Simulated assay, not measured.
Amino acid sequence: MKRHHITHIDNESQVDRSTMAESRIELLHTSRLAAVGQLSASIAHEINQPLGAILSNADAAELMLAKADPDLDEVRMILADIRKDGLRASEVVRQVRVLAQKRQPTFIEVDLEDVSKEILQLVAPIAESRGVTISTEFCSETLRVHGDPVLLRQVLLNLFLNAMDALVDVPESQAMIKFSTTLSQLGDVEISVRDYGNGLPESQLNNVFDAFYTTKEHGLGLGLAIVRSIIEFHSGHIHAANHPDGGAVFRFTIPTADVTGVANHSTGDPV
């Protein structure tokens, strides 16, 4: 009887853990969808631009082929442009689908430079529409880590959107974000996102990663809390500071993948 009672408790514990894990995945997914929603205008631009070019090139190719002696080399060049623009639009759709999926975290070897460039491509149009200039500085070393690529995209996307929000009241000539990557003295991948805004009040520096803490009028206070939980899930660390020359900088480190492609990452849940 006693043994049966213990089994019952264990089963309940397993159900509770499963429910909590599902809730965490749902929260991560909802947060990603909210971030993607903020990029809706950017995504539409990134798709409409190549589609418009495809239509124009298709019209031009049709006119050329209607001639008695069409320039086939020119037609081939137009077709190559059509293919390039089609691939560009397809890649944007792929990136959005990856971010929108609800899925269990999966650890694989990831090149953070590739992930960073994909997110930079997504946020570039919205930065342009806000008059924000993004500069990048990639280190020459390989930035391979063992982690979940979707969660890492979510971290970078949230940090870029957060940095752009910090520049709302800044003159366009000063509205800048600097993104840089390097290897720390310990050999970890180190990434920083710095805005050239007004910085953070010193009293906020210890609270910016707390759940439900926000200075935005319509903010939920979950974005940076989720960012920190994802970084810690990857056995990393993140902190915020005011830059001596103005603005705030968010910097995080993640252990590099070892020779077997496996880092000593956390086995807990990412929230």
Rank of each mutant, 00 (worst) to 15 (best):
S18E: 15
L167F: 03
P105Q: 03
E141T: 12
N162P: 06
P255T: 01
R88D: 10
L159T: 05
V36M: 01
T256I: 08
G236N: 04
V96P: 02
E91H: 14
L55S: 15
L51T: 10
N158R: 03
T182M: 03
H265V: 14
L161N: 11
E172M: 05
A34Q: 10
A257H: 05
R251F: 03
F252R: 02
E217C: 12
G197H: 02
G131R: 06
K102E: 12
L186A: 12
I43M: 03
M164V: 00
S56G: 13
A163N: 03
A124H: 09
P270H: 00
K2L: 08
S18L: 13
R17C: 14
V155H: 04
V115F: 12
T253C: 14
H5Q: 13
E172R: 00
V145A: 10
K216Q: 06
A257S: 06
R103D: 13
E113L: 15
T182W: 03
E74L: 12
V123L: 02
N48A: 14
R88P: 05
I177H: 00
T215N: 08
M20N: 08
V170P: 09
T7Y: 08
V123E: 08
I25K: 10
A211N: 10
V262Y: 15
A80K: 03
N11E: 05
I226M: 08
N198L: 09
L99A: 05
F138A: 07
P171M: 05
S180E: 05
S192M: 12
H265E: 07
G221I: 00
E202F: 09
L151H: 00
I230H: 01
H5I: 09
E202T: 12
S140C: 00
R17V: 13
V170H: 09
G261C: 11
V36T: 04
P244D: 08
P244A: 02
A53V: 15
K178G: 09
A21M: 12
